[in-house]
């Protein structure tokens, strides 16, 4: 049996943890068990092991503490906590609240930069525009509040030209 962390070495440390009614078996090699400081098998979760300590708290936040399982695959945040993996693509939407905190701890950013499949290119543009719109709207309110009307007029024009561009493109 392979270690569930490195997937490379033979697992020699076998732990069973009981979460709710489910029994979760964890098999680790000596190295990984030591590296993760697994001497109190009752007090760790797989998500912590795989994603770094504190991950499961983030996940708990990420799931908004809602007990509702993913409508598409039935995955719960407890499942994520145990496996460090999501069940299906819809999980990302379902558990999206607070997911950013978790992602920030392991990635360079929290928004995708890079390749976009062809059929999403339109959608991506629309999303970028809607982001820009939100920022402009905020600036506009601030300008009006500060009675900087010239600036407000400029911003209004910018918004108008942007909304013109989004016509015909469905927002996500």
């Amino acid at each position: 049996m392979l270690c569930c962390i490195c997937q490379e070495r033979e697992a020699t440390v076998h732990l069973t943890q009981i979460a709710g009614e489910k029994m979760q078996k964890v098999d680790l090699c000596e190295e990984c068990a030591k590296a993760k400081g697994v001497n109190d098998p009752a007090a760790f979760s797989l998500a912590d092991l795989l994603l770094g300590l504190g991950a499961s708290q983030e996940v708990e936040k990420a799931s908004g503490r809602k007990e509702a399982p993913c409508p598409s695959c039935g995955f719960t945040h407890a499942d994520f906590k145990k496996t460090g993996r999501f069940g299906c693509p819809v999980c990302y939407e379902h558990f999206s609240d607070g997911l950013a905190t978790l992602l920030r701890s392991m990635h360079k950013g929290v928004r995708h930069v890079g390749k976009v499949p062809k059929r999403f290119k339109q959608l991506k543009k629309a999303l970028d525009v809607s982001d820009q719109l939100k920022t402009l709207q905020r600036k506009l309110e601030k300008a009006i509040h500060e009675e900087r009307f010239e600036r407000a007029a400029e911003l209004r024009d910018e918004i108008k030209s942007l909304t013109g561009r989004t016509e015909g493109v469905e927002a996500p």
Partner: peptide
């Protein structure tokens, strides 16, 4: 794929 998260994978 999600325009925000990019390609969706089993492990985040």
């Amino acid at each position: 794929f999600s325009p925000v998260f990019g390609f969706l994978t089993a492990c985040p």
